[in-house]
Design a protein around this nucleic acid. Structure first.
Length: 552
RNA sequence: GCGCUUAUAGCUCAGGCGGAUAGAGCGAUGGAUUCCUAAUCCGUAGGCCGCAGGUUCGAGUCCUGCUAAGCGCACCA
C-alpha cells in the first residue's frame, strides 16, 4: 500500500501551485476527516486567513475548483468555519482496494528498502536469573517496534545484550557455588548480596549432574568458579531464550559483554577518548569530562582498582555498534534506567558519534492484577514472577496484546484474569473473533456460490455509500499512513489500537449491513470490504506478532 | 535539591502535524436476533482534559510557573 495522506498532500500542492506562495504551500497538509465529513480534510483556508487577511470561507471558495481537478478526488466541499473536505473518487478507491486485495498481507504495509541498518536492542536482562514478568513489556514493545521499523524499509537487527561480565556475574557464580560445592565436599559462603531465588539451587543441581567429575578434577577454586559461571550462564540464557520464544520474540544477535571486554573494545574506546582529550585522572581513577557534553557530573571510566566501569563498557558497546555499520541504535530500557539517558547521550557526543545515532526508549512499570486486585510479586505468596509462567498462563497472543495496552510512557495495568478470559472484553480475543467472523462470511460465500472478487471496479465502489461502508473504507486506507506515523514516533502500542479500530469498524459494518444478499452487485461490493478488512487485519497482526484464526 | 515520565468519564486507557460536537473498553442503564459467527451491535447518562497564566482566529495538544504521583541521581549493572 502507499501513504495516502502523503500522496494527497503532494497532489494538493501541485493543484494549488499557482494559487499559493512558497511559504503557504506547507500549510496545505490534509488530515483524515472526521466521521461524516468525507475522507480527508484541509484546514488550509483558516491558516491562510491570517496571512492574507481574508475570510476563510472566501478563500475556501477560491481554492475549491483547483482541488476538484485532482485525479484522486471525487468531490470537494467547503464547510464552515473554513474546511475543505475531500472525498476520494470511486476510481481511485477501486484502485486502492484492488491493491490491498492482491498484496501479500506480510508486505501490505511495507514501503520498500531504504538501505539503512538499524539495531533495536531490548530486554537485555542480566543472565543471572530467569526473565521476570516485567521484562515482558520490553519484549513486546521491542519486537513490535522492530517489525514496525521493517515496514519502513530499514534493515532491522534485534539484539540482546548479555551482561555476562562484572560484579553481578560474580555474585551469581558464587551464589551457585554456595549450593554446588557442598555436593562435591567443599564449602563456599553465600555472598552477602547473593541471589536468593530458588533457581539458584536448581542450577547448582543441574551443574552438578553435568560436570561433577570435571569439577573434581580441577585443581584451583578459581578454575572451578570459572566453569560454574560458564555453565550457569549457558543454562540461564537457554531459559531466557525459551521464555522469549514462547512469547514469539526472537533475536538476531546475542551480544556478549564478555566478548566485548576480551576483544579489547574497552581499550579501544578508552584510546578514542584519550585521543579526543576528554579524559583526566583523579584519585587514581580515569574520568571522562562528560559535563562538557551535557552530563550533570563527570563519570569514572576506569576505577582506582583498574577495573572498567559499566560506563566505559557501555561506551565501548555503542562504539562497537557504530563500527558494525548501524546508522542507529534504539535501546529499550525499563523506567529504572531512566537516569541513563543523559549520561549515555553524553558518551555518544564525547565519542563524536552522530547526535541521532542512539535513541533510548523508556517504558514505565507494569502493575499486575488478578481480578482487579493488585498482585504482590514474590515467591512467598506463590504468585508467578517468571515471564515464562505468565505466558503459559494467559497465552502468547494475550500476553503480547496486554503488554501493548498502553503507551510505553504510561504505567500499565496487566490483569492476568482479564488476559486469559475467552470473552470479547479481551482485546486479543476480540481481534481473533472479528477475523474469524470475516473468514466465516467468505466461507459462506464460497458455499453458496457467491462471488468473492479479487479486484475492484469503480462501479463496485459506487455502491458503498452508507456511513458504515465509508468509515470502514477509511479505516482500511489510513493503515499505511498510521503505520508510518507509529514507526516514526516509535509507538508500538498504536498498532494494537489501529487493529482494534478496524475490528470495531468491521463489526459495526457487519451488524448494520448485509454482505451476502440477493443483489449480486451489492454482495460483490460488500465482499470487497470483507476481503480487504481481512488483509489489513492480517497485516497488523503480523506486526503485532499475533495469530488470527480462520475459525473459532 | 536536580533530571526524566505521568495527570483526560466511576475504573483502565487512547487522542495523529494545533482544527469542526472530547474517544474506546469496562462498569451503570435502555434497546436490537425470521438474516452471513448476538462470541455482535446501537442508544442514554457520565468530562473545569491536575491548577494558574501565556502564544494563537482556534489549545487536551505548544510555552512558562505551580501541585501531586512514579522512576532515577555510585569508582553497582
Amino acid at each position: 500500500m502507499f501513504n495516502l495522506r502523503e500522496a494527497i498532500d503532494q497532489q494538493v500542492s501541485i493543484a494549488l501551485r499557482d494559487l499559493l506562495s512558497a511559504e503557504e504551500v506547507p500549510l496545505a497538509a490534509c488530515s483524515l476527516a472526521r466521521q461524516g465529513y468525507g475522507d480527508y480534510t484541509l484546514a488550509l483556508p483558516m491558516k491562510l486567513a491570517r496571512l492574507r487577511h481574508q475570510p476563510p470561507m472566501v478563500l475556501a471558495g477560491a481554492l475549491l475548483p483547483a482541488l476538484q481537478a485532482i485525479p484522486y478526488v471525487g468531490s470537494v466541499e467547503a464547510a464552515a468555519p473554513g474546511y475543505l473536505n475531500l472525498r476520494l473518487s470511486d476510481a481511485f478507491v477501486a484502485d486502492r482496494l484492488s491493491a490491498v486485495l492482491c498484496a501479500d498481507p506480510g508486505s501490505l504495509l511495507y514501503k520498500g528498502p531504504v538501505g539503512r541498518k538499524i539495531q533495536v536492542e531490548f530486554v537485555s536482562a542480566n543472565p543471572t536469573g530467569p526473565l521476570h514478568v516485567g521484562n515482558g513489556r520490553g519484549a513486546a514493545l521491542g519486537s513490535v517496534l522492530a517489525s514496525l521499523l521493517e515496514t519502513q524499509g530499514y534493515e532491522v537487527d534485534r539484539e540482546y545484550y548479555v551482561n555476562d561480565y562484572g560484579s553481578k556475574m560474580k555474585l551469581f557464580t558464587e551464589s551457585i557455588a554456595h549450593y554446588l560445592f557442598p555436593m562435591l565436599g567443599w564449602e563456599y559462603p553465600m555472598p552477602e548480596e547473593g541471589y536468593r531465588g530458588s533457581y539458584i539451587p536448581e542450577l547448582a543441581q543441574a551443574i552438578f549432574e553435568q560436570s561433577a567429575s570435571e569439577l573434581h578434577a580441577m585443581a584451583s577454586e578459581d578454575e572451578r568458579l570459572e566453569l560454574v559461571q560458564e555453565r550457569g550462564k549457558v543454562l540461564v540464557l537457554a531459559s531466557i531464550r525459551q521464555a522469549l520464544e514462547e512469547m514469539g520474540v526472537s533475536f538476531d544477535t546475542w551480544f556478549s559483554e564478555h566478548y566485548l571486554v576480551e576483544n579489547g573494545w574497552n581499550d579501544r574506546v578508552l584510546a578514542e577518548f584519550r585521543s579526543r582529550g576528554v579524559v583526566y585522572e583523579k584519585d587514581g581513577a580515569v574520568w571522562l569530562r562528560s559535563t562538557d557534553f551535557g552530563d550533570d557530573k563527570d563519570r569514572v571510566l576506569v576505577r582506582r582498582d583498574g577495573e572498567p566501569t559499566y560506563t566505559l563498557t557501555d561506551a565501548a558497546y555503542h562504539f562497537n555498534k557504530f563500527q558494525r555499520g548501524y546508522t542507529k541504535s534504539i535501546d529499550i530500557f525499563g523506567a529504572d534506567h531512566i537516569g541513563h539517558i543523559v549520561p549515555m547521550q553524553a558518551l555518544m557526543k564525547s565519542l563524536g558519534m552522530p547526535d541521532d545515532f542512539l535513541e533510548i526508549l523508556i517504558y514505565q512499570i507494569v502493575h499486575f492484577l488478578r481480578g482487579g486486585q493488585q498482585v504482590v510479586l514474590s515467591k512467598q505468596t506463590g504468585e508467578i514472577i517468571e515471564l515464562a509462567d505468565l505466558v503459559r498462563e494467559v497465552g502468547r497472543d494475550q500476553a503480547r496484546v496486554f503488554f501493548l495496552l498502553s503507551s510505553a510512557d504510561s504505567e500499565l495495568e496487566f490483569d492476568l484474569e482479564a488476559a486469559k478470559e475467552n470473552s470479547l472484553e479481551n482485546p486479543a480475543y476480540y481481534l481473533k473473533y472479528t477475523y474469524a467472523r470475516l473468514c466465516s462470511v467468505v466461507r459462506q460465500a464460497h458455499a453458496t456460490g457467491a462471488m468473492v472478487p479479487d479486484r475492484a471496479a469503480p462501479g463496485d465502489v459506487a455502491l458503498l455509500t452508507t456511513l458504515e461502508d465509508r468509515e470502514l473504507l477509511k479505516c482500511l486506507f489510513k493503515a499505511q499512513e498510521e503505520i508510518d506515523d507509529a514507526a516514526r514516533s516509535r509507538q508500538a502500542h498504536r498498532v494494537l489500537y489501529l487493529a482494534g479500530e478496524v475490528a470495531k469498524a468491521v463489526n459495526t459494518f457487519y451488524q448494520k449491513e448485509k454482505v451476502l444478499q440477493e443483489d449480486q452487485d451489492m454482495a460483490r461490493s460488500r465482499m470487497l470490504l470483507v476481503r480487504a478488512s481481512q488483509q489489513v487485519l492480517l497485516a497488523y497482526a503480523q506486526i503485532l506478532g499475533i495469530h488470527l484464526p480462520d475459525t473459532m
